[in-house]
Design a protein around this nucleic acid. Structure first.
Length: 523
DNA sequence: AACATTAACAACCGCAAGTGG
DNA sequence: CCCACTTGCGGTTGTTAATGT
């Protein structure tokens, strides 16, 4: 391994490293007396550095002190910054050699890119950024660099860290990873559309084979289940639940997804996310969201009518590995209590023999029943507006074919196809919405859209105008059901709700101040 | 107050594409 | 074409501070 490090190591080690390294290694502290160092002498080295590095930066330094690792000191930062400002970016190994830094070029690049660049925007993500991140993730999956390129001042690492933290938090709380209000707005064209810049198409070791990791055949066959619906046990969360065809997959992100396939039955009823939508129509309809919750596959294909073939909870490398094309519909319960009901129901005998016309309907209705009278109005029906539907000014949309052709394809998510119209051949798609969200009222008018949301809606670069917006009729959150987090709840209620709702979610939301809390009308 | 858990952050690691000799 | 090197990306791990019990 020959770590090559030339000249003056000169830099003092970070507090910890120093003691230890100091002994054998280079670096006489640079003066400056960087205060802190003292505190702990012993520490093992974090800089253990032993030339280890080895990796790419390769460069052996023959005899020179091993390259440093670990936290950067202010002095190192200064050297790097001065050097880059004087010579420009690039050629990072030269930076290492010429800037008097005992750091590998890669480390220098990273430090510069993530911390020293002048255009970096520090501080927590604001609500708008959060929305964008979620949306980008829906569209692209774990393309951190790509996301960063669309978030000025933010780094891929920052975004990635934020996402992973958020992911964990939501998993723990049993929340959907993708808020519906965003899922329903991501145009299909945007999904995983890789721009030339990210066309490298490399496959990483942790990525799974392009063609499917788990085929539908793998998913269909076992007898149902649902016993996995346990939010406490690290539900799997897709990194990109909506991608129709596998391309890349990350093993790190996991998620739960429920899916339903229903085809060609007259009385077919379709459900989509959160049990929110029930479609009965002979058409291909874009189905809104795929929200992480639980992998559950239903197969309502006539041939297997009404039988739940398999539900799964698998550590999916990525949702991107699933092919949900052709008739597979995503169904994602968003609230634990709903899933529990489903769980209970599914494991009951009646569920097994449920009619193919309403397997999920039965399930959902059962949920409704189980929820008791207070939630008796779980469903309502509405005509699905056409893609041009604008939630803000939804005037005059033709209630016609949502379906059929390319329009359906334009939708971000899965489309489903049925053969018949149960309700008399109208081409309108009928949806029923469940009331998973007690208390968020979304009338078509008077919805207090946030400026952020408005910007989303107006951002042509991000959103397609061809999409439908569906909102739950009923409000959602109550203090008794603290299932949503501020960023989601804000969009559902139009308000920022503080602490109380999520206090009961363990570790869910410790920060009393959600960043950049905006004002909402009527608040 | 002590300990445990979680979130946020920073950095490292391995891989693969790009580039030039 | 091969090879070494550089660069960039995404996954993973480690550290620390905040928070909860």
């Amino acid at each position: 391994m020959t770590v090559k490090v030339e000249q003056e190591p000169a830099l003092e080690l970070p507090p910890k490293a120093e003691a230890e390294a100091g002994a054998d290694e280079f670096s006489p502290p640079l003066s400056s007396g960087e205060e802190e160092e003292e505190d702990d002498e012993e520490d093992e080295d974090e800089t253990d550095s032993e030339g280890s590095e080895g990796d790419d930066d390769g460069a052996g330094n023959g005899g020179a002190p091993p390259l440093r690792k670990g936290p950067w000191t202010p002095e190192e930062d200064k050297r790097l910054k001065d050097y880059v400002e004087a010579h420009g970016e690039g050629n990072w190994n030269q930076v290492q050699r010429n800037a008097g830094l005992n750091r590998c070029g890669k480390s220098c690049r990273l430090r510069w890119a993530n911390h020293l660049r002048p255009d970096l925007k520090k501080g927590p993500f604001d609500a708008e950024e959060v929305d964008k991140i979620i949306k980008f993730h829906i569209m692209w999956g774990n393309k951190w660099a790509k996301m960063a390129s669309h978030l000025p001042g933010r780094t891929d690492n920052e975004i990635k860290n934020y996402w992973n933290t958020r992911l964990k938090r939501h998993q723990r709380a049993g929340l959907p990873i993708y808020p519906e209000y965003l899922l329903s707005r991501v145009p299909d064209q945007e999904m995983n559309c890789h721009t030339p810049d990210d066309s490298r198409g490399k496959k990483r070791s942790n990525e799974l084979p392009q063609e499917k990791v788990i085929g539908m055949d793998d998913l269909v066959g076992d007898f149902m289940v649902f016993q996995h619906l346990d939010y406490g046990k690290d539900p799997v969360v897709p990194t990109n639940p909506l991608k129709r065809h596998a391309s890349t997959g990350d093993l790190s992100s996991t998620g739960d997804l429920s899916c339903v396939q229903m085809t060609g039955n007259t009385e077919q009823t379709f459900y989509s996310n959160d049990l929110n939508h029930v479609l009965t129509k002979s058409q291909s309809v874009p189905v809104g969201s795929a929200i992480a919750s639980s992998y559950t596959l239903f197969d309502a294909n006539p041939s297997t009518s009404g039988t739940i073939h398999k539900s799964m909870k698998t550590e999916l490398p990525s949702f991107q590995n699933y092919d949900f094309s052709s008739g597979w519909l995503l169904q994602c319960p968003s609230a634990p209590h709903v899933e529990q009901h489903i769980d209970t129901f599914i494991q009951s005998p009646e569920s097994i023999s449920s009619q193919n016309t309403g397997l999920l309907g039965a399930i959902v209705n059962k949920v409704d029943v189980l929820d008791g009278p207070t939630e008796s109005k779980r469903f309502f029906e509405m005509t699905v507006p056409p893609f041009g539907y604008n939630p803000v000014s939804q005037s005059g949309y033709p209630s016609s074919s949502v379906i059929g052709d390319c329009e359906a394809e334009a939708h971000p998510f899965a489309e489903i196809q049925a053969s018949n119209s149960p309700s008399g051949g109208s081409s309108d798609a009928i949806f029923s919405f469940s009331k998973c969200y007690p208390n968020a009222s979304f009338s078509d008018s008077g919805v207090p859209f946030s400026s952020l949301e408005a910007s989303f809606l107006n951002d042509d670069s991000l959103l397609s105008k061809e999409q439908s917006y569906l909102y739950p009729e009923e409000p959602i959150l109550s203090k008794e059901q603290p299932y949503l987090y501020p960023e989601e709840l804000k969009h559902l209620t139009g308000q920022w709700l503080d602490s109380s709702p999520w206090k009961s979610v363990p570790g869910a939301y410790n920060k009393p101040d959600f960043p950049n809390k905006p004002d909402f009308p009527g608040q």
